[in-house]
């Protein structure tokens, strides 16, 4: 934290930025509690006069969805919430664990040579759309299509460059002498990393985990093209609330979007104190 003083002009600018960034959240939450007649009203209804939880009920009641009309989604959102949690959590944990090993290997031991970090990063240089269809074909042939294993695998592969590079920067910032001091004090290399490196980059580790989780949680394209009916995630489910007769079910969509936002906001609040760097301050002479 810098000791910058909050002056009136600064407060004004910050307030403006806050309004701009919070407005979409406000709008989604308001839409989620509007009755169907207010969803698309003109002029817009900012705050519904009769807030309702009906949209949230509709999400988990297949009959209520079918009542809106023909076409679109006919399943409750339960599967998609479960699917998103499974694919995102598993994909994030694996990506961060593998990325952490890679980051320490690259930063401390230059494993794989100088080009390795760039080769790993090059995995992000393909537009996902360019590799989506080949993956559909490959997955169909190896039996991974429409499976959580398959989706998790692609989430790990897709986010590994980010987790590796982010964690590498945190490991780079940590003076290696601290690890070496503990090796001299009596720990093996592996134990030095477990007992010293990881606790000291905890803030970075949490920030990386949250970032990777957000990427996986909001991923749409692969979840769409690599699944038929078994595997669904929230972003895919969101796109299904379109009916032939009643149009797009904005309120129901907004309700699911609110549910989708909650874990991210909660996670952000929980770890915000760890997000700031500065854990290593005072450890070494600068």
């Amino acid at each position: 934290m810098t000791g910058r003083k909050l002056t009136w002009p600064l407060a004004f600018v910050l307030f403006g930025a806050l309004i701009i960034s919070l407005f979409p959240v406000f709008w989604i939450v308001m839409t989620a509690i509007k009755p169907p007649t207010d969803w698309n009203a003109s002029p817009a209804i900012w705050v519904p006069s009769h807030p309702t939880m009906v949209n949230f009920k509709t999400l988990f009641d297949p009959d209520a969805i079918r009542a809106y009309g023909v076409g679109g989604v006919s399943q409750a959102a339960t599967n998609s919430v479960f699917g998103s949690l499974l694919a995102s959590v598993a994909g994030t944990v694996l990506s961060v664990v593998i990325g952490l090993c890679a980051a320490i290997g690259i930063s401390r031991y230059a494993n794989g040579g100088k080009a390795t970090p760039l080769i790993i990063l090059s995995g992000r240089m393909f537009p996902p759309a360019a590799i989506a269809v080949p993956f559909v074909i490959i997955y169909s042939n190896v039996g991974l299509i429409d499976t959580y294993r398959g989706l998790i695998a692609i989430y790990v592969a897709g986010t590994l460059p980010f987790s590796t590079w982010m964690l590498k920067s945190f490991v780079d910032d940590l003076p290696r002498e601290i690890e070496e001091a503990v090796m001299i004090d009596g720990r093996s290399r592996l134990m030095a990393h477990i007992f010293v490196t990881i606790p000291l980059i905890r803030g970075g580790l949490l920030a990386t985990t949250l970032f990777i989780f957000i990427l996986n949680w909001s991923e749409f394209m692969f979840a769409l093209v690599l699944s038929y009916s078994n595997v669904t995630t929230i972003p895919v489910q969101l796109a299904r609330y379109v009916t032939a007769t009643a149009g797009t079910l904005y309120g129901v969509q907004a309700a699911l979007a609110v549910l989708a936002m909650l874990p991210l906001i909660l996670a952000g609040l929980l770890i915000q104190s760890h997000l700031a760097r500065g854990m290593t301050f005072g450890a070494v002479k600068r």
């Binding site: 001091a181 001299i184 000291l200 070494v284 002479k285």
Partner: peptide
């Protein structure tokens, strides 16, 4: 041998105290 098995102690130029 690993550093821990060498019966040495080292003071690094940046000290490398455990900050936590």
């Amino acid at each position: 041998l690993e550093p821990k098995d060498r019966d040495i102690a080292m003071i690094f130029d940046n000290l490398a105290l455990y900050p936590n």
